[in-house]
Structures are given as C-alpha cells and as structure tokens.
C-alpha cells in the first residue's frame, strides 16, 4: 500500500482521467480524498496498492505527464528511492 498525493487542475474530466490512469496502470485505489478546488487547483490524496509488480516510481512519472496533473508526491521508502529516476526532468509536459 502506498500513499500518493496529487495536485490537480480542476478541469472537466481531470479527476476521471487521473483515477482511470491509476487503475489502468495497474493500481487499486483503496481510499480517496479530494479537497474543494482553490484557485482552480484541487488536492487528491489516495492509498493505492499495485496489482502485481508495478512500480510506484513509474506510476508517479506516468501521472506527472498528464496535462491536468501539476504535481505528484509520494513518500518513497529508501529502498525504492535507489531504483528511482535520477534528478532531472520528471514530466515531459512543457510549460508554456
């Protein structure tokens, strides 16, 4: 079970897109919390479990590239951090 927090732009379809991506990439959403939007931004907190061998680090980057997703936070245990991406670009989305 992992905790994940996502800062999401409040737009039509953004929540569904985020949740369906989490599921499609092989994670079960165990619990979910959403704040009311402030200045067009909402915070999503979820507890998720991989369905098999899926890496949280990869999921984080897959979510980061969604246009609606502004940031993803995962408290990452030290043993996983060694497999994680080196510092650098995490999102392939360009800011304008």
């Amino acid at each position: 079970m992992h905790n994940i927090r996502i800062q999401l732009a409040e737009r039509e379809g953004a929540l569904v897109r985020l949740l369906s991506n989490i599921e499609r990439r092989g994670f079960i959403i165990e619990s979910l919390d959403k704040t009311a939007a402030q200045d067009g931004v909402t915070d999503i907190a979820a507890r998720i479990t991989p369905r098999g061998e899926r890496s949280l680090d990869v999921l984080t980057r897959q979510l980061s590239r969604l246009f609606d997703v502004m940031d993803v936070y995962t408290p990452m245990p030290a043993h996983m951090a060694s497999h994680a991406m080196p510092p650098g670009e995490r999102s392939c989305r360009q800011s304008q």
């Binding site: 890496s55 990869v58 897959q62 980061s64 590239r65 497999h83 991406m85 650098g88 392939c92």
Partner: peptide
C-alpha cells in the same frame, strides 16, 4: 521520463 524503468530495470537513465 515515464518510459524509464517501466518494463526493465535500468542501470543508467537519461530522461
């Protein structure tokens, strides 16, 4: 960056 490490462990990654 989301492709790195998706299906195979990587020894050196450049995104």
């Amino acid at each position: 960056p989301a492709e790195i490490g998706k299906l195979r462990h990587v020894d050196a990654a450049i995104a």
